[in-house]
Nucleic acid binder design. Structure first.
Ligand SMILES: NC(=O)c1ccc[n+]([C@@H]2O[C@H](COP(=O)([O-])OP(=O)(O)OC[C@H]3O[C@@H](n4cnc5c(N)ncnc54)[C@H](O)[C@@H]3O)[C@@H](O)[C@H]2O)c1
Ligand SMILES: NC(=O)c1ccc[n+]([C@@H]2O[C@H](COP(=O)([O-])OP(=O)(O)OC[C@H]3O[C@@H](n4cnc5c(N)ncnc54)[C@H](O)[C@@H]3O)[C@@H](O)[C@H]2O)c1
Lengths: 229, 229
DNA sequence: ATGCCTTCGTGCATAATTTCACAAGGTCTC
DNA sequence: GAGACCTTGTGAAATTATGCACGAAGGCAT
């Protein structure tokens, strides 16, 4: 077994690198040249040691006593995340959300141009949304090949999301961004990220309820003078 | 210190409970009465022991040798997540995304009715989107009070997201769903969930690049007959 | 009733992640 | 160029999460 493979970055760190990158891009835009782990930690809302450890997975690119160079670190994070090239995205499902994504201009500048959108509804096929014409989902494989699609976004109805992802995988796509509130069945060789607003709201609800209960407990404790167990 | 507070559920488990709930709702809709941890694990794409442990945080609601009752578990998860009541949502920023959320009918049935939407652009204020009229962001505090808003969704431009969240927190909102690609500064007493598609795409890009490099290494290894270290 | 069969609940080992703490290695001033 | 002063990079400890393995507990057939 040759150990040529890149040093693996822990999953938890991978999810934070894009956040750091965002912040560094902002710093760059405001002409900041250098930053310390403390500063980045404050901006990212995390621990400074965590920042240093995360950045150390990229290599030793800091200078002791000084900090890190903004532009250099931006380059290194991009390299590690695979952002020195573009990754083409196809949207499957030209409904409300799918069309919003296709129209949204915020992805192409970040290296993820939306190069196609498809649907299975004859009424949708042929319509234009943003600068794209809705294609037929039956041509997905050809589209993936011709347009060098790397990532598929699932914005179909929930009921058809599984068949949509099956079609994407058949077409050779191995990275999926899923907006349908369903757990997709996929081989382990495929990456799936789920964006489920319902789930997010329910998580918020849990912590909100915790806080509510806690303040209620506090109130009760205040009223009944000295109750202790 | 009285130990009246509810047994704390680990964060990792909290993020999975909504997923289980989704699946159980589907099972319920297809008239399934019971399930085993193995079955739910397969549907959720996780380990069966993890399912049992997660469900055990709710209490001992399974029957050994049999499994769990769908409707009963649905109730218990809802109770724990705080879904036995509704949590009203206000959307701040009536642009593309904000209006899409306001129009989307999928949240109210899940217990999160969108009761208001506001903007700071005079041209937007007064327009109707879905069944709502866009209000003035300056009336946010009154709105939160009158409509008993529990959760705020930030869909403003990135530059104004921080002031929008400040306004929400001033108004007494302690749960935030943030769609702007920025790390918000908030007191620790406020919960924030970030939904950043750019981040998701970049995470996918990392793993996609890993796979690409791996297959390239494999190819090289195949070509150069026996290279070993 | 007895015994077999199934599946839960959980103690415990392992793995992953976070955090601490500090030596190492730099810059900057005088 | 010596010393004061910073901030990184990273072992090691602490915390959190995962997964195994098995006893406990119930149903069901005979
Ligand atoms: N709209 C929102 O704000 C929002 C928010 C959160 C989640 N979602 C989720 O996103 C998904 C899409 O939502 P939407 O509001 O855009 O729904 P929609 O009904 O407007 O759009 C779905 C589109 O997918 C197409 N489609 C269905 N099956 C297909 C298939 N097999 N191949 C190709 N196209 C197919 C339909 O023809 C339709 O055009 C849903 O799962 C929804 O739950 C939407
Ligand atoms: N549209 C998408 O598909 C999409 C996808 C991913 C992320 N986002 C993010 O979501 C956010 C909104 O995107 P969008 O496309 O809807 O933008 P948009 O420009 O269409 O809408 C922003 C709206 O917010 C309003 N606004 C600005 N400052 C405000 C304030 N302080 N108070 C109240 N309202 C205010 C503006 O008047 C405008 O109506 C952006 O941060 C964007 O990056 C959007």
């Amino acid at each position: 077994m040759t150990q040529l493979q890149r040093r693996r970055i822990p999953d938890a760190a991978v999810t934070r690198l894009p956040v750091y990158l965002q912040i560094l891009n902002n710093l760059h835009a405001t002409n900041v040249l250098r930053f310390s782990s403390d500063e980045l930690a404050a901006l990212a809302g995390v621990n400074a040691a965590k920042v240093r450890k995360d950045l150390s997975y990229l290599g030793s690119y800091g200078t002791r006593g000084v900090g890190y160079e903004v532009t250099y670190l931006i380059h290194q994070i991009k390299r590690e995340l695979g952002l020195l090239r573009e990754w083409n995205v196809v949207v499957v499902g030209a409904g409300n959300l799918g069309c919003a994504l296709a129209k949204f201009g915020g992805f192409a500048p970040r290296g993820f141009p939306v190069v196609g959108i498809v649907d299975n509804d004859p009424k949708k096929i042929g319509q234009t949304t943003g600068s794209l014409t809705v294609g037929d989902v039956r041509n997905l494989a050809k589209m993936v090949r011709d347009l060098k699609v790397a990532i598929g976004a699932i914005t179909t109805s929930t009921a058809t999301a599984q068949s949509a992802v099956d079609a994407l995988i058949d077409a050779g796509v191995t990275s999926i961004l899923n907006f349908a509130p369903i757990v997709l069945a996929t081989p382990s060789s495929v990456s799936v990220r789920n964006v489920d607003l319902g789930v997010e709201l329910q998580i918020l609800s849990y912590y909100e309820q915790m806080r509510t209960e806690q303040t209620e407990v506090a109130k009760i404790q205040t009223k009944s003078s000295t109750v202790s167990v």
